[in-house]
Design a protein around this nucleic acid. Structure first.
Lengths: 184, 184
DNA sequence: AGGTGAAGTGGACACGGTGTCCGGTTGCAC
DNA sequence: GTGCAACCGGACACCGTGTCCACTTCACCT
């Protein structure tokens, strides 16, 4: 991996910041490569050089925010990090994810709508984490339960609930209850 | 509502059966209006006369199968229908939905991928049903919980789990456990 | 049976987004 | 300052969408 050229870096910056604004300004699911290229003031070819599609740009933006949480899950203090009982860690995870979604739904919608969600590296991470918690908690068939428990965190679901007037706080409470009830 | 003309009925039939085969034959999310028109041997204009988009055709096909379940929920024998305690009815509902998905994933994927799911009448029905059960079960904040509990039934999630090797039976067991544990 | 008007049909059209390709430009190392 | 490799951006061909309208088919009425 050789050093990035100056003009390339400049354009990457322009693209990311323009995309970030676009995702926030309109329905993220309707943002096109052409939109982003125009907003960033670069050619479409330049865009495709680095990103194969719109979703991957949103993913790149979202990744930054997710990295922090992933780090905390691995080596932060309990109950998010190791050290607390699994159901408490699950509740803490739910809370953190709800907050993350609350702040970045637009990016999440741009990145992981529909089936694309499962293709992102992030989903793999969350999945591995929850799977480990379920194994530790000794529930029956963790592999069948993981995706079920992650489903409510799909950006589509979150957006719909918000649209229906369910606040993030109420959602967090519901998820926490769910996590707690799973213990035993 | 006047009677349907003979040629119209004939075409409707051709369209639905051609669409049904197409959804089963390839990834339902990639089926286009053009595909269906060609397969049915009708013009694109004819298609648009009745259906605004591909999803609505899949929805029409899926509806038939869903009608039966909806009827049972309303007036069938317990535990699916009225008469059993709410958590048992929820478990029965989960089981029935898993079976429905098992048989018709392709249609469900064509009909309700991503956010479109919440726009269908069917989702409203499931939602109302589960909401009523949750109210009856006296859980805290049913409105915050209902979409959370329906999220695992999203076609995308089901398809992903199947792809990962989780059988419908295992999924059903997991969902049943979830429903039962909510009782308390 | 034949005429008539309304319902239904289908293909042509304009549009917008995709992804690729390549001649021209820019930056960096020497 | 020169050479080359990385990078840029617009043009191009393609595909799916949704609309529009001249034409066909049906069902009803006499």
């Amino acid at each position: 991996m050789t050093k990035e050229r100056a003009d390339a870096a400049r354009n990457r910056e322009k693209v990311l910041s323009a995309a970030s604004e676009l995702f926030a300004a309109k329905d993220p699911r309707t943002v096109t490569m052409e939109d982003i290229a125009r907003a960033a003031g670069v050619g479409r070819g330049t865009l495709y050089r680095r990103y194969p599609d719109v979703a991957s740009i949103a993913t790149a933006l979202l990744d930054e925010h997710e990295k922090a949480l992933q780090h905390e899950l691995l080596q932060g203090p309990p109950p998010l990090g190791p050290g607390a009982p699994p159901h408490e860690r699950l509740a803490a995870f739910y809370t953190a994810m709800a907050e993350l979604l609350d702040q970045h739904v637009h990016l999440a919608l741009g990145a992981e709508t529909g089936a694309r969600r499962y293709a992102t590296g992030a989903y793999g991470f969350w999945r591995a984490h929850v799977l480990a918690l379920l194994r530790e908690a000794d529930v029956g068939d963790p592999d069948a339960l993981v995706d079920t428990l992650l489903a409510p965190l799909a950006p589509d679901v979150f957006a719909y609930q918000r649209e229906r007037g369910v606040s993030t706080a109420r959602l967090t409470a519901a998820l926490t209850e769910l996590a707690r009830v799973l213990d035993r």
